[in-house]
Design a binder for these strands. Structure first.
Lengths: 214, 214
DNA sequence: AAACGTTTGAAACAGTTGTTTAAATCGGGA
DNA sequence: TCCCGATTTAAACAACTGTTTCAAACGTTT
């Protein structure tokens, strides 16, 4: 079972790794198969040998990134109180899309796919994003003691996700506009704590003012 | 001064218009000069005649979009109370990047530029985004009665912007995940009201719990 | 050793890309 | 009317794109 420790990754894996980096940096159109194969140290024809074509390589790479970003979790796994659960949810999401220790292209690929979707978006949303979102909605409902309408839950969920994705989608702008946020080595924890507190207050305000039961 | 009413737009303007649509839909690399010129009803060589090359056309188009999205305003122009000002700020921003009555490519181009910046990003941020952000920060400070540290103001600002841009960057996902939000014809007003209320509560919570004066 | 399917290699393919060229056309003043 | 700059046109250019081809090399099984 256990292979030799220093065995070089097989060509197919190296291709996905290199493709992730290049697609993440340049996008699907900007990336060239020649750069990908050069970086993966494989022959030019390898892409069409291991994958049908450039697009299938992209879809495979995207699928790989989504699987590691959207790990399935239930609210109960994240903590006992809704506040704990929300913080853990946000912190986990931020880590998976922004932690520089992880391969950076996971988050980059996700950001690109969200803004300019490929034909894989539908299955992607249903397979990965919706279950993840359901967990978030459960947390929000319990944080508001069940006093929110479904519409209000959706809006609150969008607010939480929007705040998180800002640091991924608009990182370049944030670096120039608010570098103080990103300077601390553990800035992800600070940001997660802020988003959690900020959102909990927002949810509480939704629950108190004009609660609609539906 | 007044030209004939039905005078067709000059070729250069038609080029920027068509380029905006194509760049917005396909991105810089995905767009082809042939499609742009075809849509603008202009000869292929017109791009290199009116602009140096494809890139300068892109930068010119981007500049055009930014100028209409980021209109300079002061908090006092938006309302008397901080709550009014914040709502007006959010509502205005959402309208400019999402209102289907406006040319849709303005917002699309902005979203693309934020996630994969061109070499214009620096000047863009300083010219358009920073003044706009300063206005938002002023509103946040007054909404919190001056009780927030600069870091807290920055975080709150990122939260507000993040919530707004979510509906632009992740529109495709939102359509599939929470279509009920986007269904109403005046959904932009609902969303703006939600983001304003949600954020005001978040800011108030920041101001009360552990306020840091710095 | 021979034969096998699998993987790699270099070269070439056809199509598309952005850009350039130079001739043709237009619109007003001299 | 003629001339001249500005604009438009069609054609061609070289460079690059994704993909294919087919032979060479490899590793395992007869």
């Amino acid at each position: 079972m256990a292979t030799l420790p220093a065995a070089p990754a097989p060509a197919r894996d190296r291709l996905i790794q290199a493709a992730g980096e290049v697609f993440g940096d340049q996008g699907f159109d900007g990336a060239t198969v020649r750069e990908i194969t050069r970086r993966a140290k494989v022959n030019l024809a390898a892409i069409n040998y291991y994958f049908r074509d450039k697009e299938e390589l992209y879809l495979e790479t995207l699928n790989h990134a989504m699987r590691t970003i959207f790990v399935r979790t239930q609210p109960e796994d994240l903590g006992t109180t809704p506040a704990e659960q929300l913080l853990a949810y946000i912190s986990g999401l931020l880590q998976r899309i922004l932690n520089p220790a992880r391969p950076g292209w996971h988050g980059k690929l996700l950001a690109r796919e969200l803004t300019s979707p490929s034909r894989l978006l539908n299955v992607l949303v249903e397979t990965f994003v919706r279950p993840h979102r359901d967990t978030l909605h459960k947390i929000i409902r319990s944080a508001a003691d069940g006093q929110l309408s479904e519409m209000q839950v959706s809006l609150a969920g969008a607010s939480v996700i929007g705040q998180c994705l800002y640091y991924r989608n608009c990182r370049a702008v944030c670096e120039r506009l608010s570098p103080e946020i990103l300077e601390a080595p553990d800035y992800l924890d600070h940001v997660a704590a802020h988003i959690a507190d900020f959102s909990l207050a927002g949810i509480a305000a939704q629950a108190t003012s004009a609660p609609r039961h539906q």
